[in-house]
Write a protein that binds this DNA or RNA. Structure first.
Lengths: 236, 236
DNA sequence: CCGCCGCATTGACCCATGTCAACGTGAATG
DNA sequence: CATTCACGTTGACATGGGTCAATGCGGCGG
C-alpha cells in the first residue's frame, strides 16, 4: 500500500544537458563550476505519495526538483496540516532551515530531484559566489510567494482563495486561457494549501463551473474559460 | 496630523560601534569590509505611524532596522490588510523583491534604520561573499517564520493564534515569564497579523486574562503568567 | 463484468468568528 | 476642567465556512 520505493542512484548526473538548467540554481554557472556541481549532485526518484524529506530530520540535503510535483507542508500535533507550497521543476527543497528541516515534502506525482549534500553545496558556494547569489534570488522569490499566501490565508474569502490558486498555478505553469491545465493534487491537498476544507473547495469549484468561469473535464484538470471574471473573483 | 517627518541624515554611520552588529547582517564582517559597509550606509528615522517603504515603489534601498518596531504588510484593493511581520532591531527590510517592493512598511514606534542602496550592497557582496552568505541565512530564517505563520493563518483557531503570537513575541524579545512585555502595536495591527478582527483579538485576550494565563497591565503591555498553559493553548 | 474503494460531490445543519453597535477610558487639547 | 478623539471592550446577532452524513463515480482487482 505504502509505495515507499524511493530508489536512489549514484552521481551519474549530467547538468550540462539538464532541461531545467535555465531556470534552476545551476543556470548561471560557467562550465567549470557546472562540472563541480555535477560532481556533487546525486539523483533521487520518489513515487507519488511517498516522502522526500520529513520535518525535524537533520537537514543534510538540498534538492532541486527536476520532474513532477512536490508538496511541502507542516503538521500540527493533532494532525492538522498546512501545505505551504506546491513545487514544480526548478524549485528548491530544503532551503529554509536551521539544522533540521522545518517542513515535510511529499511527492504529488512521481518525481525526480537533484540532490546536493548541504555541506558540499556550502563548500562550492565559497568558490563560486554566483551560486549563492542565485540561491539568494530564489529565496527572495519564495519569500514573496509566502507573503502573498499569507494575505490569501489571512484575508481572502474561499472564492477568492480558489480563484487565486487557479490563476497562480496557470501563471507558473504557463497555461493559457482555454487550454486544459493538469491539477495533479487532490482536493484535500488544495484544501490544506488554501486553509479550507475539502467540501468548501469542491463546492467553490462547482459554483465557478456553473458560473462559466472554468471547465472541469475530470478531477485532475481544469480549463480557465473566463480569465477576466476569475481575476475579478480573486480579489486583486 | 500626518507625522511624515522622515528626517534623513547623511552617511555619518559608525558600524563598528553599532549595538545590533552582532545580530544583523554586518555581524560577520571583518573590519575592512565593515568599513566599506559603513561607507555606503545611511541612516533614516521614521516617526511612529509613518511609512518607510510602499508596496509597488521601485526597490532602491534595503534597510536594517536598528531601533524601534516596524510592521510590514500587504493591502488588497478594497483595503483589507495582512501584516506579514513585526520587525525588531537587526531585521532586514526590502529583502523580498523583484524590481519593486512587494510590501509596505510602517513604523509602529519611532524607528531608526540603516539604509543601503541596493546597487551598492550588491556591488559590495561581489567583493565580500560572507555578506551575501549572511543575507541568505537571514532569508532562510524569514522563510521559516513565514511558513510557521502560514500554518497559523490557515489552520489555527483564534485562541491558538493569539497564544502563538504572544509566545513568539516573548521568545524573539527574550522576555521571561512573569516579566511585563511591551506590546507596541495596537489591537488592529495584531488582528491584521493574525487574520482576525479587532473584536476577536480583544475578546480572546480578555478570556486569557480571566483564565489567569496573562496579565494586561495596560493596553501596551502583557505579562505571561502561566507559560505552560499558554503553550498548551497555542496548539503546538 | 462486477464489486469494491478512494475520492469527490452534495445536502443539512451548526458554530466560531465576523459584523454592527453601544459604551469605556485615557491621553491630548483648548 | 471640560471636550474630544482614538482606541479598546463588551454585547447581540448574522453568516461563511466547517462538520457530519449520504450519495456518486471512476479505476482496479478478482
Amino acid at each position: 500500500m505504502d509505495r515507499q520505493q524511493t530508489h536512489c542512484c549514484g552521481a551519474r548526473v549530467d547538468c550540462a544537458n539538464c532541461g531545467i538548467r535555465p531556470i534552476a540554481i545551476c543556470g548561471a554557472l560557467a562550465p567549470i563550476a557546472l562540472g563541480k556541481l555535477a560532481a556533487i549532485a546525486g539523483s533521487r526518484r520518489v513515487d507519488a505519495g511517498a516522502q522526500l524529506i520529513q520535518e525535524g530530520e537533520p537537514a543534510e540535503d538540498i534538492f532541486t526538483l527536476t520532474e513532477g510535483m512536490l508538496k511541502i507542508y507542516k503538521l500540527m500535533p493533532d494532525g492538522r496540516r498546512q501545505i505551504t507550497g506546491f513545487l514544480i521543476p526548478g524549485d528548491l527543497v530544503g532551503l529554509a532551515y536551521g539544522d533540521s528541516y522545518i517542513y515535510s515534502a511529499e511527492a504529488v506525482t512521481d518525481i525526480v530531484a537533484c540532490r546536493f549534500r548541504r555541506s558540499n553545496l556550502l563548500a562550492l558556494m565559497t568558490d563560486h559566489p554566483e551560486l549563492e547569489h542565485r540561491l539568494l534570488s530564489r529565496a527572495g522569490n519564495e519569500l514573496a510567494a509566502a507573503q502573498a499566501q499569507m494575505l490569501l490565508l489571512g484575508r481572502k474569502t474561499a472564492r477568492e482563495r480558489v480563484a487565486s490558486f487557479l490563476l497562480g498555478l496557470a501563471e507558473r505553469r504557463g497555461t493559457k486561457t482555454g487550454e486544459p491545465m493538469p491539477l495533479p493534487m487532490n482536493r484535500g491537498d488544495i484544501a490544506d494549501f488554501l486553509g479550507l476544507t475539502i467540501e468548501t473547495v469542491s463546492r467553490t469549484l462547482t459554483l465557478m463551473r456553473k458560473a462559466g468561469l472554468i471547465i472541469l473535464p475530470d478531477k485532475h484538470s481544469v480549463t480557465i474559460t473566463d480569465l477576466a471574471s476569475l481575476r475579478a473573483a480573486s480579489g486583486d
